[in-house]
Design a protein around this nucleic acid. Structure first.
Lengths: 199, 199
DNA sequence: GTCTATATGAGGATAGAC
DNA sequence: GTCTATCCTCATATAGAC
């Protein structure tokens, strides 16, 4: 990777971090430049479309990061129920580490953008769609029928994202822990049922 | 209500609306003044602490609004399962009406504030805590044991908030509809179980 | 590719007349 | 209580030298 590419990547990952903490509008270009130790003069060389382009790239990074995070958890656990619980709890650890000041970048930005921010809308749509598909596939592989897999995917994803928001709002891991426990229990029950029908 | 109080209330409810659309940092005082048809000169008479005070009041209003919304749904439906599904779907209608440009004010603001915004942190904490307690009580009244009620409350609340975020990000009511269907099914099953143990 | 300097506008907040 | 005018800071973005 050339030096220029390194700078580019450092800007993007710093931006992702700031988005998780403050969201879109509170994150300024000056702050991005400072915290990434990037040369300010070359910002518009690397990202000709300005702030929106930087943030869109940061959202893509957040999407990829989460996808690999989920994939890891699936490999590390025998059951879907355990994997989902582990994923949910990992966000609890993330929040505790950062004093309840971070949540998923797509979650923060999604609440701020309007119709005009075309680049961001696209990045958000693709990011969420990617996660949804990942979860649907996970449930399908675990023998859930297609419609059930889709519904479980939405419920699971919604609960994980929402629990992050609640945990951050209340500065407590309780919502994430309770959500993790419930998801493990309920997904486990459903799994048993589908296994019996199968076998 | 005096004219001054009316102005005050109009500012607060306009702010709540803007928070739902854009969040905290994107909402400016000028915009609040314009859209509420309030006199700019009296902003700091009504709210001496400035923007943070206005937003804190708007968050309180959002909290109260949702509480009464939930209470209504509970009265209108026989079972907790149906009430929860109805509440979830009502957010789908809200989103469709406004072209997927609105979500819960506490949800949007919670993703943007840091440690310094003391007033906002307090308003968020109280708002979320109020909802949580409301849901816990609901499940307890429906014969759920205390710990189960707490866990179901967090899962339900998380799922509803998260589904709003996903729906907004993907501009689709699918996450809300799937989440509503799942919550109705799962809460219904749990209810049956606890009813049997009871009777 | 990176620098400095700057254009241009919007943000929140305040002062003082009425 | 409401008005106008204004201050100060910060934002994004651009221009032009190197």
């Amino acid at each position: 990777m050339t030096k220029a590419q390194e700078t580019r990547q450092r800007i993007i990952s710093t931006t992702m971090d700031l988005l998780m903490q403050q969201g879109y509008h509170a994150t300024g270009l000056n702050q991005i430049v400072q915290e990434s130790n990037a040369p300010k003069g070359s910002l518009y060389f690397h990202f000709p479309k300005g702030k929106e382009e930087i943030v869109a790239e940061a959202l893509n990074l957040a999407g990829e990061w989460t996808c690999s995070h989920v994939a890891e958890a699936l490999q590390a656990h025998d059951s879907v129920a355990d994997a989902v619980a582990a994923i949910t709890l990992s966000f609890a650890h993330l929040l505790e580490e950062d004093n309840y000041g971070k949540s998923c970048a797509l979650l923060t930005v999604a609440q701020e953008v309007g119709d005009d921010d075309v680049l961001l809308r696209k990045a958000l749509d693709e990011g969420f769609a990617g996660w949804y598909q990942l979860f649907v596939d996970m449930f399908v592989k675990a023998q859930f029928p297609q419609q059930a897999a889709e519904r479980w995917a939405d419920l699971t994803l919604s609960a994980i994202e929402g629990a992050q928001a609640l945990a951050r709002g209340q500065r407590s891991v309780r919502p994430l822990e309770n959500t993790a426990a419930m998801l493990r229990l309920l997904i486990g029950n459903a799994q048993q049922m589908y296994d019996m029908n199968q076998g």
